[in-house]
Design a protein around this nucleic acid. Structure first.
Lengths: 250, 250
DNA sequence: TCAGTTTTAGTCATAATGACTCTAACTAAA
DNA sequence: TTTAGTTAGAGTCATTATGACTAAAACTGA
């Protein structure tokens, strides 16, 4: 994002005369095993800037608003181009329009946030200029992107307290323990397995399958399926989700 | 908002070549007594369009993004200019960027929503081209503004379920019954007075004053004061409010 | 066969909720 | 002065949700 657009402003008066540039950026979250514990933790892909400003620093994927796309489509397209990812969940986060976000021309960024499933996240090409980072304790990023990531994290944790969002970080079938691990990774605290299971089965939109996950060195857990029929890549803006409360157990 | 900016596009290819125009609009809510029952209900001010497109139709107040202002400041300034209002609460709602929101050039609107207190709302100048309308059952508005108002209503009702937002529609001192009336007006259903009072006093950030409201034909109710110290015109975006639950009683 | 693990069901005390009753305190009409 | 009408405000009670906890079930690996 924030590629220097059209003209480089030579001075303040020229800068004020230009209309602000419009950019789209996306914060993408996925679960990956922690290096130490192996437990799932939150990660996000970043791209390295190859030109000024902030050349060499890592930044959120994005770019100028493509004329022919809606905002949502532009976000999805940028995601595909820069990281190869197709998100299972994509929602507008916020429009950032401070006066001095970019040193050259003024840039208004409309930021989306996305969740991708582990199978998709594996496909994401890593390279010299595209890498995955743990969502907490990020290094210094370009522009105001640290602030943006923090806000996206806050929103993710917030949405978590209602139902339905956790499943976009998982595959089609999952165990109840996996759902709990998503909550624990996002909210950064442990939860009582028994109580969590009780609440999930009461309120959440899931149904049991007759399959069980094999391979563990313990009793095989039943696999469940999400029945929320969330249209995936849909916006929670207009036509958004009415919240169905799920409070945190144990 | 959506004043035809800079150049009027002559054809599709020219239109696609131009960068999208940026506009700011605001949905403003205030309580006003219903014509029939006299009970408080939700109203919002609209301005009549005096030029094409949609000349003659009512629309949300707004305008192009002023260069020297942040997004939030631009919203507050437009509010002041078009309706004379200074909101006690102002928050970003959503960025609307569909391809064909405006028939001439493509316009991306960053929409804010605001709450004003009754004393302020009275000051709002009404005129031939500025009027107040009930928030539900609106007539056809210019552009996609019906959709925007509906979404703002959804967000207002949503925020209502956490605490702290209702008081921005009231004055400095208020009775508990008035708070309940705000909830009833916004959520559009009645609530049990006794249970509502109990919950408010448990969780909400209010303190009793030693004053009582006189003039009713019944026992005078105690006046309360909000102690949330919400910095009023602050954003709930980045640096936003962590939600403190208040569920609906009765 | 046994120890170790996680799944899964269940118990129990406490807190929150919704429906309801009753008294207090005022006004207005009789 | 009394009485009816109104809302304020406190309190009761059954039901439900929550958090902490116990324990059996079902697998693996030694």
């Amino acid at each position: 994002m924030e590629r220097t657009p059209f003209v480089a402003a030579a001075n303040v008066s020229e800068r004020l005369a230009q209309p602000p540039a419009l950019a789209i950026s996306t914060v993408i979250f996925a679960l990956r095993p922690s290096e130490k514990s192996g437990r799932p933790t939150l990660w996000l892909p970043l791209v390295r800037r190859i030109r000024e400003p902030f050349k060499g620093l890592w930044a959120l994927p994005g770019g100028p608003l493509t004329q022919a796309d809606s905002l949502q489509d532009a976000a999805a397209r940028d995601l595909q181009d820069t990281t190869g990812l197709a998100p299972s969940y994509l929602e507008q986060l916020y429009a950032f329009g401070g006066l001095h976000r970019s040193p050259s021309q003024r840039v208004v960024s409309i930021v989306y946030w996305a969740l991708v499933q582990p199978t998709e996240a594996e496909l994401a090409q890593e390279s010299e200029n595209v890498g995955w980072f743990r969502a907490d304790g990020l290094q210094e990023l370009a522009f105001d992107h640290n602030e943006i990531v923090d806000y996206a994290l806050w929103r993710l944790r917030n949405k978590m307290e209602y139902g339905s969002i956790a499943y976009h970080l998982l595959g089609e079938k999952f165990t109840l323990a996996q759902v709990r691990e998503v909550y624990e990774a996002v909210l950064n605290r442990t939860m009582d397995p028994a109580n969590f299971r009780r609440q999930l089965k009461q309120t959440a939109l899931i149904e049991p399958t007759d399959e069980f996950q094999q391979g563990g060195k313990h009793r095989p857990p039943r696999l469940y399926r999400y029945t929320g029929m969330d249209s995936g890549t849909n916006d929670a803006g207009p036509s958004g989700h009415p919240p169905s409360r799920l409070s945190s157990p144990g």
